[in-house]
Amino acid sequence: MSIVLKVEDLDVFYGTSQILFGVGFQVERGETVALLGRNGAGKSTTMKAIAGLAPPRRGRVELRGHDVAGRKPHIIARLGLGFVPEDRQIFPEHSVEDNLSIGHKKGPEGQDDWSIARVYEVFPLLAPLRHRMAGRLSGGEQQMLAIARTLMGNPTAILLDEPSEGLAPIVVQRIGAFLRELRTTGATVLIAEQNMHFCLGLASRVIVIDKGQIVYAASIAELKANEDVRQRYLAL
């Protein structure tokens, strides 16, 4: 397998406050990896640093072999990164289908695998909502739309920041099924979550972050067997 995303020795500051300390990990093609940690551990900052929204003071971010650390977000997006932020950022006054159309572009190597028809085929829950204004969707429907719109850009790697945040348990289950279906397409995905149980059936590997540092990295099976790590870093 080839490495799609590689992060090395990342230091990120907000003003004079250091948030990330030497963060490093990699994601291989076709993997779904979970970046787990409590609220405030540094998950969102890591995602923003990769996406160009919180430029690192030190370290390296490689996307498909390109060093993108500190580059502008639109440049990183053109190189194949799709980012679904925590607040989703859909266009509320546009229909579901308009949101999908706005997101459509070819991938960095001319890929055009995702079309509106394929989104509706892979994620049929969106099809009956195609003419509804996005601002009138439920939180879970908006999350699905945000992910689907990102896919319309034919990204090489997808970052999902807290996709289960603020959603009812039944809706979280639906989003999980949506992401399991996405995994079958061969997508490369990094999910930042504090909800460990949401990720157990989605990810193949986990990376645990605490106080801005990577403290544990292992398979899902190893995390399940390590009660000490779960209690120390992930118990709410």
Rank of each mutant, 00 (worst) to 15 (best):
R64P: 06
Q194I: 00
N99C: 10
L126C: 12
K211R: 12
L10A: 02
R130K: 13
V172N: 08
E109N: 10
L36Y: 04
P92R: 07
I158T: 12
G52M: 11
P108C: 05
R57Q: 15
A225D: 05
M47A: 15
R132M: 10
L167D: 13
V7G: 05
L63N: 07
S44R: 00
M47W: 02
I19Y: 07
L125C: 03
G37K: 10
G22C: 08
Q111G: 10
P108R: 03
R205M: 06
D9I: 02
G186S: 07
A69R: 15
P55K: 01
R118N: 00
Q194C: 01
I191G: 00
M47D: 13
A148Y: 02
G140F: 03
Y120S: 04
V27F: 06
D9C: 02
V61L: 09
R174W: 09
L137D: 06
V27K: 02
R132Y: 05
G24W: 09
P56Q: 09
T16A: 03
G40R: 04
G82P: 12
G166V: 05
G186W: 02
R118I: 13
P56D: 11
E93S: 14
M133D: 06
V61E: 14
P163V: 09
I147W: 05
G52V: 02
P155R: 00
Q89I: 08
M152Q: 03
D98M: 03
T150N: 04
G186Y: 00
M196H: 07
I170K: 13
L160Y: 09
I191W: 01
W114G: 06
D228I: 13
T188P: 15
I3L: 08
A49S: 14
N99Q: 05
I19T: 15
G52Y: 08
L36N: 03
G212F: 01
A168W: 03
L125S: 14
A54D: 12
L36P: 10
T156R: 09
D9V: 07
G107M: 15
L81Y: 10
P108F: 04
A168D: 03
L53H: 06
E227N: 14
Y233L: 04
R230N: 14
E181A: 11
I175K: 06
V61K: 07
I191R: 01
Q143M: 08
G186E: 00
N99K: 08
Y233S: 06
R78A: 13
L160D: 10
A157K: 01
F21I: 15
A34P: 09
